[in-house]
Amino acid sequence: MPVSPRVRWRGPAVVAAARSAAARGMLLAAEHVLGASRQRVPIAEGTLERSGAASVDEQRLTSAVSYDTPYAVRVHENLHARHAPGRTAKYLESVLPENAGTVQALIAAQIRRALS
């Protein structure tokens, strides 16, 4: 008796699962970058550090790390200001290149989990 193979195409479901997993991974990665930047953000009263947030736009598959105080950009860009040891200007910009491998691994792990 011949066997007739059946193939079920689940392409749209796989794509949806991969996108959802990528968004989860991007949020984990953004939170990782936020945590690393909080270790460097200059502290006077802690307001700037507490204003940090990580977010993901699931439709566009983009993530962001931001600090929401009126002076966040000024503190970030002022290379001449003095800060406590370990605290520095460019507190956000400097951590992403150093953590790029971890960021990629976090995203990839979520996608692998969803597709396995």
Rank of each mutant, 00 (worst) to 15 (best):
R24F: 03
A114V: 11
Q110G: 00
V3E: 12
L34P: 01
I107Q: 01
E49G: 09
M26N: 06
E45K: 13
A22M: 13
R38L: 12
A109F: 03
R19I: 10
A22S: 10
A29H: 08
S55P: 00
W9R: 12
A22E: 08
R60K: 15
G11S: 10
A89L: 05
A17V: 07
G11C: 06
G52N: 02
L28D: 09
R8Q: 12
A30M: 05
S37L: 10
R38M: 14
T69K: 04
V103H: 02
H32Q: 08
M26E: 08
H32T: 04
A89V: 05
A53Q: 03
L34N: 04
P12M: 07
I43P: 00
L28V: 02
T102A: 12
A18K: 10
A13I: 03
A84D: 11
R82D: 15
Q59H: 09
P85W: 00
Y71P: 03
S63N: 03
L27M: 13
W9Q: 11
M26P: 00
D57S: 12
G11F: 13
R82Y: 12
P85E: 04
M1V: 12
S66P: 00
L61M: 05
Y71A: 09
A100K: 11
S63I: 00
A114I: 09
E98Y: 01
A23S: 11
S20Q: 14
A89D: 14
V73L: 13
T69L: 08
S116Q: 14
I43S: 01
W9L: 15
S51E: 02
T47G: 13
E93Y: 06
R24N: 11
L28T: 05
S55I: 01
A53N: 01
S37Y: 07
L92R: 02
V65L: 04
L61I: 07
A16R: 15
Q39V: 05
H76L: 11
A16G: 14
A16C: 10
V56H: 04
V56A: 07
I111L: 10
V75F: 05
L92A: 07
S4L: 10
V75K: 03
R113D: 15
V14C: 06
S51V: 04
V7A: 13
I43A: 02
E49D: 14
L61F: 05
P2F: 08
E58W: 05
S51L: 04
